[in-house]
Design a protein around this nucleic acid. Structure first.
Lengths: 224, 224
DNA sequence: CTAAATCTGTCACAAATGTTACACTTAGAT
DNA sequence: ATCTAAGTGTAACATTTGTGACAGATTTAG
């Protein structure tokens, strides 16, 4: 077991090495390798283990009732997979998970996770923090989806970025295609809205750089 | 402390009474009362305590930048408030919380929650299960929002109900107004879609009872 | 049991969004 | 350096959805 690598995993941050050694010796924790294109988990399969990527990345896909594949997201090391779906009554993978490249990962059974969290307070807090981060992202996304118009979603998004950078000039952290997907709208619709907002003098757009030109009007847009 | 009441709280399910006594004596746990209309938490206030309703109910509201109030949801005893937002970097209440009636509640500091979960495995599992349930509901809702058309959302929703009841005849578990809000669409638009689907012979609607008449066609609707 | 509040069903019209298509640019791979 | 895939910008048109308004039904509170 490579403890240098393991201590980089958020779940094990700040846990002392001798504690780690103890935990790994007492519990069933395996390092497993998955070749590119291999399935790590099936959609709707019971989620009874936590998979934490050590190296590489995977893609999460949804399969609809006609068998068509819808891309959901990519996950990179050192993140865990589906941590929010490990417990509860509905503990099934909501998506299928496929290796995008050769991947190594820790696989820890649900039982072992429970024991592990009981053994070490730092680990427990890490686990709760990580779960909360994922939940927060979910709720953020829901928040965006709940705005009626594309303009509202866009202005909220830009405003949020603008607050983070403390500037009226922001750089999108996704491609416009991805942003459209994130909002759940068609890409040309998003582009059109950006053009309109530029024509109206609210913003100026150049590639991924967006500048807020009329902050007053702009703020009013974010009202529901 | 009323242990009969406390053992009904999901978080304390199946925890032995003597364990509960020990936990409550060692940790800072308060039973607090809130009168009707009193604020239990401010929007954006740091979420550094877990509030578990013992009796009564509260409403969660969002405030937009003009100060207007948007109702989000109601929470009833014996549920906890904002359990997903207690940890993580962004541990703030996403909504303000107001008592809808006279309320009594357990208030447990974040620190005490951490210690408590380390003390008892059953409690730990309960906590993780409860969190997972909330996360699951979030992701379900997100799933519905991500369907493009109202018809798709509706047919997914009806199909899900139909699977639960194992019957082609289902009864909506929300008012149509609530359902429209849940989907994030306008109420008349939802009604119109129901009417159209009825006209097309896909379903029959009578008040809250919906019968799937053409399961073949119906299944095709849920494809993305 | 009555009054008030909420929910329902429906409309005509306005507004927003999706679709499809095409040309062009940029970034990444070999 | 060239080729290829991904991303961008835009347009005309079709479709879906929202809005505001109203009357009637149903539920809840007093």
């Amino acid at each position: 077991m490579n403890y240098a690598l393991i201590s980089k995993i958020p779940l094990f941050h700040s846990v002392e090495e001798k504690e780690l050694v103890k935990i790994f010796s007492e519990l069933n924790i395996f390092e497993t390798r998955f070749e590119k294109e291999v399935l790590l988990a099936l959609q709707d399969e019971p989620c009874n283990r936590l998979i934490i990527l050590l190296t590489g990345s995977v893609k999460a896909e949804m399969i609809d009732s006609l068998g068509r594949v819808i891309k959901v997201e990519d996950v990179f090391a050192p993140n865990p997979l589906a941590i929010l779906f490990l417990f509860g009554k509905n503990n099934r993978f909501p998506v299928q998970i496929i290796a995008r490249e050769n991947v190594s990962a820790l696989v820890i059974s649900k039982q072992s996770i429970l024991r592990m969290l009981g053994m070490n307070q730092v680990l427990l807090k890490n686990y709760l923090d990580i779960s909360a981060e994922f939940a927060w992202r979910l709720s953020q996304k829901l928040h965006f989806m709940s705005f009626r118009t594309i303009r509202q979603k866009l202005s909220m998004y830009i405003l949020k970025l603008s607050k983070e950078v403390q500037s009226d000039e922001v750089e999108l952290d996704k491609t416009k295609s991805d942003l459209a997907e994130y909002f759940g709208v068609a890409r040309p619709s998003l582009e059109r809205e950006l053009s309109l907002m530029q024509q109206e003098g609210l913003i100026s757009v150049e590639k991924k750089k967006i500048k807020i030109k009329n902050k007053n009007k702009f703020n009013k847009l974010t009202l529901v």
